[in-house]
């Protein structure tokens, strides 16, 4: 087990237990940051979308450099999305965009589509943007959107970074097949949950 994985696991433990991380956690802004992080980490849709995005980055042949640039790109995207969403966007449209993004990312991973570095970074930034849009639109009553967004960014970076790192570790041919299959599963889940948006229950 490499030191990086150990550090990631320990970081995850700390993220899941804010009283250890923040010392005086449990009130004020720390609580909101914690809410933002958990909102990402415990929401399957965000986890799957960000995982698909990370798998796509790791699939590219351009290597570590893109993975390193992907982190700031996704942070920038989430921040932009959070700011744009303050303009009271249509919730249905935002959720539709988010789920469509999940499908597109899944299909790109499943097909192992080769894309240029700039396009890849654009896709990563758009993923962050859509995540930020949905977070802020669907959580309009958060006491402090900024603190909540900070937490969400940390959560997003943790999910994206962990998935990206895990995918890069496994360079074996079987692992590459599994990544493609995982992409198809994510796209399939995305297609089905998107279809629910057209059902009047």
């Amino acid at each position: 087990m490499s030191s990086i994985i150990k550090a990631c696991l320990f970081g995850l433990v700390l993220l899941l237990n804010p009283s250890a991380l923040l010392a005086h956690g449990g009130f004020g802004s720390a609580e909101l940051i914690y809410d933002g992080m958990l909102h990402i980490l415990l929401n399957v849709q965000y986890v799957l979308t960000l995982t698909a995005c990370a798998l796509l980055v790791s699939q590219s042949d351009t290597g570590e450099h893109v993975a390193a640039l992907a982190q700031p790109a996704i942070v920038l995207g989430i921040i932009t999305g959070t700011v744009v969403a303050l303009a009271n966007l249509d919730g249905w449209l935002v959720v539709y965009l988010s789920r469509s993004m999940m499908v597109i990312l899944g299909i790109l991973v499943a097909s192992s589509f080769k894309i240029t570095r700039s396009t890849l970074l654009f896709i990563v930034a758009v993923t962050g943007l859509v995540t930020g849009l949905e977070l802020t639109t669907m959580e309009p009553h958060a006491e402090s959107p900024v603190m909540f967004a900070i937490g969400a960014i940390i959560g997003g970076v943790v999910v994206h970074g962990s998935a990206s790192r895990l995918a890069m570790i496994s360079n074996a041919r079987l692992a590459k097949i599994m990544v493609r299959i995982a992409g198809s599963w994510i796209a399939a889940i995305g297609i089905i949950i998107t279809s629910f948006m057209f059902v009047v229950r």
Binding site: I107, A110, I181, S184, A187, A188, I189, F198
Partner: peptide, 21 residues
């Protein structure tokens, strides 16, 4: 070995979407 298990869930999801709507 990977094309079939990748194609199946994707198309199955489209069939599932038809069923849902």
């Amino acid at each position: 070995i990977w094309v079939l298990p990748v194609a199946f869930p994707l198309v199955m999801a489209i069939g599932g979407a038809f069923g849902v709507v």
